[in-house]
Structure formats: structure tokens, C-alpha cells
Design a protein around this nucleic acid. Structure first.
Lengths: 338, 338
DNA sequence: TTGTACGCGTTATCAA
DNA sequence: TTGATAACGCGTACAA
């Protein structure tokens, strides 16, 4: 790897001149030397050493993408189509802006923070943070932070959040189910925090507005861990006759549930209606095609990265950006109106 | 961010002593000062500046994971469950070894190389390289390289490849189809290079061994680009009555094809048998569950990273590591023997 | 056992 | 228009 110093030596000039040419500080340097240097750079295929540059300028050109994994979900985090599309959107935007992405997955916030400060990361995108996690991070880390899908009133004071109108999404979906004659509607999720809670609230609100009583037995809890999920599914399928429809918090769960039901001889949508949330390939490729709530996950990643880049260039950004969600009606809901 | 210099000043000692304690060069330093320094480090939450360390030691602790995307497939690369699981396996292994992962996606080999040398990456994992790509890289980059799924005789001289017995996988699968009475078997893929070619070869070999004539019309080419795939599928579905079974080069294509067939009133496996390759969640969650060839993708990622780490610690590794593939018989193949 | 001083590759300041 | 030189934070040879 050739260095500026070496180039300067071979060209009989100073490192400053070479550096100036590299940075296009034309006007500071004669056209003649400029050309000479540029040709030489091309010839030797010069690539700057980023570590040295970082040290000199105290900036890294790295944007960290930290995925906080719940301990019980760690295994499948990256397999989730949602997560991988998100990563893709972020990576592409960062790369096009001349930055680099460092991906870090951990269930330990402190570990994430250590990582971020060793690398002197210029900006941070956080996904999977719950309530106070984000605040703890922003106490230690004083550079731009953008969160994705974080529901934390307190946190919004400290950073921009890229979210979705989750509540509206499930509200619309529940209303749609109600319009199709459903009243015994369950909600399936694996937790009651953040996004899941917001989606649950939209569902509950729709029930309330339609004067349908919500009982806690309508909440079906699924356990995501590989060694427990079968048991969960068994229990849920066993109780499926209590409902005419089940709203799942994600397409992944919806498709998983439909497979489990099918295996037990229960047909969707004939015997029970199932809907998801996300509108990813899992539901799109499924037959019957999944009725779900659409969100543009890639756009979420792109927006998060673009917002961070804006902040890095000194612009202000709103505290909250909410992407729209909308219903996608396909084939897993039966109209049970007489 | 506190520096060693600053710590030394506050503690009234030299930077060497502090540095020695940090690096556990005990024996070089008295227990008393050692304790004093350690306590202080913890108190101020010292984190080394990696850029400076890189510069001083000429190593980065970064492992690059470069995904080379085909131009026409770029969009969906990261969405492919195969890719995301692979990334997960690599990331986990690298992180546990105290290294960092830099993910880089590009369709331009030169761009990848530039990226790698700016960061002075300690080792490189390459995925999606075709034939000479890997060689071009290894000419410029003189540190350890591990490839994933690269078929390149020439390349194997320069780096370790982590592969799969692709040919055996499709060979077994084709034989299974033949045992179920199928003779008109098509093969679906989007290209004829690398992995796809190997899988195709296994299929052809099985046909040959069973004395079934292979005609070029048995190769169904699908176009992966979003704006062309529908047209492809339409054509393929239109020709589906020429075959009793279609072997798809991936689960993704298998499931996509089944959905397209279903939409046209063609049932799987009643009207036609479809099989995939990979055994990922797409096929597992599908109903009827997909008959496919299993490969452990996470293990591929883990093995690639572990092999690279071995090389970094100076150990020799074999040029070729082939992971096993095996049949997973589920419900998308019909026995058409009388 | 501890400290001084230099080098890593780059940028930036200031002088020539 | 160009060139010395210091600085960034860390590791380490060598000196004390």
C-alpha cells in the first residue's frame, strides 16, 4: 500500500501538495503539478489509509447500525425478512453517501456502546431498543442518533425516531375484520412492548369503537424460541375455535400460524381468518395470499440513514418521522356476514 | 473520549505503564500500579481508539464481508433468506473472536477492492464471486481470503473455499424424482454459473445415469428482475404441462413458482411436482411443505469466518471445505408410478 | 519497574 | 504555488 509520503518522495514534492491534489484543492496548486500528481495517483492506484485520516480529522466516516436482539429472539433476528430488508436499505444509502456501515448485533447495550466508541463512529442507527435503552445510549454517545421503531416518549427528546403508524395500521385492519362480520378476534404477539404494544393498542381501540368487549384471553402469546414455539403453536391452535379471526403482529407469525393450523386440518380462511403485518415476501408468496398491513421496510432503512446523514451535515430533523401503513386485502379473510 | 496520555497524566505515570496494564503485560509492572491503573480505567470507562491502534500496529481487526451482487439481482440480494442467514453466521463468529465485521455490497469488484484496502481489512470473506473475480481480488489483496460458494479451479489455488456438495444434492434429488416415476423433469434457474451450474450438472448426471435424454428445452430460465419475473413465470407456467416435475435451483424460486402455478389453477403436487434447494424458512413454512435439499447456511457462514480466523492466527487450512447436503422429503412431490 | 521518544499515514497550520 | 512541521492516539524499543 503506497502512502502519500512515498508518493511525495518519488515525485520530489511535499506531502502537502500531494494531499491538496487528492482533495481537489485546486487553485492552491499549479495545473502542471496537479496533472503530474493525478497521473501518478492513478498509476500506483493510491488508496488513502482511513485509520490515519480518522486520527487526523477525528471522524471515522463510519455509521454504526446496531441491532439490539432480545435474548430469546437472537437466533432468528437476522433471518427475519424484516431485518434483512432494513439492513439493505441502510447499507445502500450509507454507501452512496460515501460512508461505511458497521453492523453490530448484540443483546447487551453496553457492548454496543463500547463498540461504537472504539470506532469513533460518526453516527448511529439503533434498532430494537426498548424504552430506556435509547436514553442510556444517548447519555454516553454525543453524536447523531437515529432510532428505528422505538416507542419512548422520553427518548424522543434525545433523538429522531423513524417509525410507522402501527396503531393506525392495526386499527384499520381490525375495522376491516369487523366489517367482514368478525367479532371474536384474537391478537397474537410475543411481547407487549414498543411496536407490538402500539399494534395491540390499535386493535383494542378498534374493538372499543365497535363496542366489542376485549378480554385478556383474546391476547395469544407466542414464544419465539425454537424449543418452545411448537408448544405455543399447539396451544394456540387448540384454542382457535374460540375465534373467527386472529390478527398476528407480523407476517412471519401469520404464516407460521397458518402452517400450524393447516397441519391440524384447520383451513384458512374457511375455518378461521388470519392476517399479518408487514407485507413481506413471506405473505406475498403464500397461498392463499396473506391479507396484511403494508409497510415499506426498505424505505424505513433508507429514511433512517438519510435522516442521519442530514444530521451529520448539520441539518435539523424532526423528532419523529412516521411512515404510512396501509391495508393490503388478499385472501386470508373470510366474509362471515350472513 | 479519554486517551492513554491523559490517563497517564492524571495518574502521574507514563503512557507506557498504562499501555502495559491495558495489554495485560503483567510482570512488567508492579501489582500496586497495576491495580491503580485498572481501577482508573474502569472509572473513566476507557475505550481505545481503534484508528490509532490500527495505525500503530498496521492491523485493523476488521474482517470484510463482501457480497458481490449481480447487477440484475442487486435489489433482492439482501432479502434472500439465504444471504441474511449467512451474514448472521459470519457476524456472530467474528464478533465472538473480538473482530469487527464490515459489510460491503457491490456489483463492482474494483469498488470492493478499494474499500478493502482503505480500511486495511485484516481478512476477507467473499461471496458471489464468479470465476476470475476471486483471482483478480487475490492478485491485489495479499491477506487471507475465504470464499463462499465459489467454483473456480484457478481460484482454489489462491484461497480457501467453503462450499457445498451441490452436485450431489441435485443428483440425489433427481434420483428421488426418478424413483417416484418422473421422467419429464425440468430444471429452473436464472443463470448457468457457479453454484447454479453445479446444481444443474448434478441434475443432468442423474438423468444420464437413468438413461433419460436431456434436451435443452428442459432448462427453464427465470429472469430475476422485478419487472421481468412475471413474464418469465407466465411463460414457464404455460409450459408446465411439458413436465411432471420441476427442480428449482433455490427454495425462493420453488415457492415463487408454486405461487404462480397455484394462481393459474395448477396444483402442486397433484398436477406437477416442484422441489427446491436450500431448505430455508420459505419452504418450511409453505404448505404443502416443500421437498428440497437441505444445506446449513448458518454453518456455512460460521465455517467461513472460523476458517478465516484460523488463517489469521497463522494456521493452514484446506483449499476446499465441502459441507454436506441432504434430501428433505416433504409434500411437493407426487409418486406417479402406477 | 517506569519513562522517553519515535513512528504509523494523514491533515492542517503557517511560513517561505 | 509549495514546503516544513506539528498533531491525532497508540504501541514499543530502548534507556533509565
Amino acid at each position: 500500500m503506497i502512502t502519500i509520503k512515498e508518493i511525495a518522495k518519488q515525485l520530489n514534492m511535499s506531502t502537502t501538495t500531494v494531499s491538496n491534489v487528492i482533495h481537489g484543492k485546486t487553485g492552491e496548486v499549479s495545473d502542471e503539478t496537479k496533472k503530474k500528481v493525478q497521473d501518478f495517483l492513478k498509476k500506483v492506484d493510491y488508496v488513502p489509509n482511513i485509520s490515519a485520516r480518522n486520527l487526523a480529522q477525528n471522524e471515522s466516516k463510519i455509521i454504526g447500525l446496531a441491532l439490539k436482539a432480545r435474548a430469546d429472539k437472537y437466533e432468528n433476528l437476522i433471518m427475519d425478512p424484516f431485518v434483512s430488508v432494513l439492513i439493505g436499505g441502510v447499507e445502500e444509502t450509507i454507501r452512496n453517501a460515501g460512508y461505511f456501515m458497521m453492523l453490530y448485533i448484540s443483546s447487551d447495550t453496553d457492548e454496543i456502546m463500547r463498540h461504537v466508541s472504539t470506532w469513533n463512529v460518526d453516527g448511529l442507527i439503533l434498532f430494537g431498543m426498548l424504552n430506556d435503552d435509547g436514553i442510556r445510549v444517548s447519555e454516553k454517545y454525543k453524536k447523531p442518533i437515529v432510532c428505528i421503531d422505538t416507542y419512548s416518549i422520553e427518548g424522543l427528546k434525545h433523538f429522531t425516531n423513524i417509525g410507522l403508524d402501527d396503531e393506525q395500521g392495526t386499527y384499520d385492519m381490525a375495522n376491516y375484520l369487523i366489517s367482514q362480520g368478525h367479532r371474536k378476534i384474537a391478537f397474537l404477539s410475543d411481547n407487549m412492548n414498543g411496536v407490538d404494544l402500539a399494534r395491540f393498542n390499535g386493535y383494542k381501540k378498534a374493538l372499543k369503537d365497535a363496542r366489542i368487549r376485549f378480554s385478556s384471553t383474546n391476547f395469544l402469546k407466542i414464544k419465539p424460541r425454537a424449543d418452545e414455539i411448537e408448544e405455543s403453536l399447539d396451544e394456540i391452535c387448540g384454542r382457535s375455535d374460540e375465534f373467527t379471526a386472529i390478527m398476528c403482529v407480523s407476517d412471519l407469525y401469520a404464516v407460521t400460524l397458518i402452517a400450524a393450523l393447516t397441519d391440524r386440518g384447520i383451513s384458512v380462511p374457511e375455518d378461521i381468518s388470519i392476517v399479518g403485518f408487514d407485507d413481506n415476501m413471506l405473505g406475498q408468496l403464500h397461498r392463499p395470499a396473506l391479507t396484511t398491513v403494508h409497510q415499506d421496510v426498505k424505505a424505513k432503512g433508507v429514511t433512517a440513514a438519510a435522516t442521519l446523514l442530514k444530521q451529520l451535515s448539520g441539518q435539523k430533523t424532526p423528532n419523529q418521522i412516521k411512515l404510512p401503513a396501509h391495508l393490503v386485502i388478499r385472501d386470508t379473510v373470510k366474509n362471515i356476514n350472513k
